[in-house]
């Protein structure tokens, strides 16, 4: 009887239910990833991405998603370097819907994130922050869910936070020649998953080697030297 009640209130999740009405997804526009995650990113909530060093392709993982959803604002908080407008615009991101926030301290960054989510006019939020405590993560998670926004929390540790933070998904990223290797630690509505390889060759042919071809010929740096005009030397 109690179990029935709990089930009615969706407090109990049965392994049989693969994707209930609460488990809507938005496509990541990477077919392998979508297949692996049964539809893609969560529709709303907080996603933790442990990236390790910046620049391994963590934004490339998100750019196709951001380029597709543009009816509301996309907020970037404290990126580790300047956001290159040219690169964003190249990938089809509407810069007029992009807001860049730089905060002096972590408290302000969290405050801005919460305000942006609660305003209801932000669809995606990307926050670079070192760490979140469980209450902070919970507040952001609730704000994101309530306002149907998807928030990515990126940090530079190689492993995701060990504490059981109340997030929708927790993944770690590692670079490979073909793109990224995703280790999935937690994903709401999914069983524990095997690591997943994201092939970025199709979208970024010059940045990633094709996944299923023979060992690629790597150009050697020495062969690429081009003589500069002599007066500049």
């Amino acid at each position: 009887m109690v179990l029935l009640q709990l089930e009615k209130e969706r407090l109990v999740w049965r392994a049989r239910q693969v994707a209930g009405p609460d488990h809507r997804r938005q496509s990541s526009f990477y077919p392998t990833l979508d297949a692996h995650l049964q539809g893609g990113w969560p529709h709303s909530g907080l996603v933790e991405l442990a990236c390790g060093p910046a620049g391994i392709g963590e934004l490339r993982l998100l750019l196709p998603l951001l380029a597709q959803a543009q009816s509301r604002l996309q907020v970037w908080i404290n990126p580790p370097a300047e956001l290159n407008g040219q690169a964003l615009a190249q990938h089809g991101i509407d810069l007029s819907q992009t807001l860049l926030i730089r905060c002096q301290n972590p408290q302000q960054a969290l405050w801005s994130a919460e305000q942006s989510l609660n305003s209801g006019c932000c669809s995606h939020l990307i926050l670079w922050a070192l760490r979140l405590t469980a209450p902070q993560a919970k507040r952001l998670q609730v704000s994101a869910k309530d306002n149907q926004a998807l928030m990515f929390w990126l940090h530079s540790q190689a492993e995701p936070s060990t504490s059981a933070l109340p997030v929708s998904a927790r993944l770690s990223l590692a670079p490979v020649a073909t793109g990224l290797r995703l280790q999935i630690y937690k994903y709401q509505g999914l069983w524990p998953q095997h690591p997943c390889q994201v092939d970025m060759h199709e979208l970024w042919p010059s940045l990633a080697t094709p996944g299923h071809s023979s060992p690629h010929h790597v150009p050697v740096l020495m062969n690429n030297i081009v003589a500069l005009p002599s007066k500049l030397r």
Binding site: A54, R60, P79, P80, A81, E82, Q86
Partner: peptide
């Protein structure tokens, strides 16, 4: 402005 065609990095150091 239109974005350039050449591939550019998304994070750039000043």
């Amino acid at each position: 402005q239109q974005a350039t065609r050449a591939l550019r990095p998304s994070l750039l150091f000043t």
